[in-house]
Design a protein around this nucleic acid. Structure first.
Lengths: 244, 244
DNA sequence: AAGTGGTCTAGACCACCGC
DNA sequence: CGGTGGTCTAGACCACTTC
């Protein structure tokens, strides 16, 4: 039974179906701190094994929708505590998820020798060639950030870049799928030029995020620095203690 | 059978033993991007089932020590890519893990009516009583942060507070174990008073972290705001894309 | 085609919670 | 004490990578 009728079917794992069903139950008929059906009941309801039920629940736990209490049950999480595990997103994805409409203005697109800090961070020889992209990013037509991206030309030649479409998608097609990144968040005072571009007073505080992206295999792909207006952008994340 | 001999014996799960063994192999004889033994080999080596091996590996993946490639194997992660999944830590723990010696100076310890923002964030009635703790935090005897903590007096009476020992430990003993927190990170310009306390120029940029902590069950426990000197503190974290 | 990790089954026992 | 989640076994088939 492959259920190939209808649309082009990609395999949907059973645990995803179970998780989706539980998500629906939560949305329709459960309140925060209500108990879910027990794992053994969920096995019977969905006709799957215990491991599949537990995998489904673990997905929901990671999403912050439910929590386990050993010996007692699995419960719906507080409504206002939605999952904010930070994910690696593009500026465009980030703005859309925040409910804003993103746009951008290219300020610079050049091929240069990698600055020392970039070469060091990406493990490149001292003056390797990189593509530098500098863009003013806007949300709902108001400046919100300045972004500088550095890409080794060996990863993606400058000429084949298309700033009109997703950079991460182009990297993926070139065999460099971005999988993880290390980010450093700091506060800075804006320079005269940057404050003019962002349309704020000189010396205003700003949030600066430096990112080094790598593939699943650990190849260093991208160095980026994004400077956000302090009055229009904050960074939110959920953290847990201990673990276990 | 409490196993009271020597130190308190707690059950060590098999997957933890397998994980520990793999950690040791990595430290002793493997380099980044070397392949681990396959899951089936690890089953034989440790005499455990596949699920136990996979659980052990999943622990290591979460620590950032190894990564999976479907169809190919499990590999040692890059050395410089150590786990930076942000955890909820106290100021003291944070400074120690950064290699500094923490100390602090209490600026204020009062019982007040909760400010609007605090009452709102903690879900308290408008003028509920809270304990306000304001401290100057130092690292290696130099000011690094200003911290304001608000605790409902119903959680912990002001009089029973002991600022000399871990606040989280006191909360745990009072039945309010802090499990998770939502944090908001933003950039601000320092006020005249705060810049004097932190020993920097007035109007300097600073990193402000606002935290709302809750128990495993979602009870809101603590509201805190910490203002860090931009030149002495940055926030680092690893993020991944997609999930799955 | 062979080997790898990813999903899944149908059981079992243990540790913990609340009555 | 019964019910809950946490760990664990011994299998099986699938999807993917590599040769």
């Amino acid at each position: 039974m492959t259920g190939d009728a209808g649309e082009g079917r990609i395999v949907v794992h059973k645990y995803e179906q179970v998780a989706a069903s539980i998500r629906e139950s939560i949305a329709q008929s459960l309140s925060p701190h209500d108990a879910l059906a027990s794992e053994r009941e969920l096995m019977a309801i969905h006709g799957v094994s215990r491991m599949t039920v537990r995998k489904a629940i673990s997905v929901l736990v990671e999403e912050g929708r439910v929590y386990n209490v050993h010996g007692s049950g699995t419960f719906v999480g507080s409504a206002d505590i939605f999952s904010k595990t930070p994910k690696l997103t593009s500026f465009t994805e980030d703005m859309i998820s925040r409910g804003s409409t993103p746009s951008s203005r290219v300020l610079e697109l050049t091929r240069i020798a990698a600055p020392d800090q970039v070469a060091l961070a990406l493990g490149l020889a001292p003056s390797s060639e990189v593509t530098k992209i500098r863009r003013l990013r806007l949300a709902d037509d108001t400046p919100i950030a300045l972004e500088e991206v550095y890409l080794p030309t060996t990863v993606l030649p400058t000429e084949s870049l298309n700033l009109g479409s997703s950079l991460y998608e182009q990297l993926r097609l070139a065999g460099y799928e971005v999988f993880r990144a290390e980010q450093e968040i700091m506060a800075i005072s804006l320079s005269a030029e940057d404050s003019r571009l962002l349309d704020v007073a000189e010396g205003s505080a700003a949030l600066s995020v430096t990112r080094v992206s790598s593939s699943r295999r650990g190849q260093l792909i991208e160095f980026a620095r994004t400077t956000y207006r302090a009055d229009r952008y904050t960074f939110q994340l959920a953290v847990t203690r201990d673990d276990k």
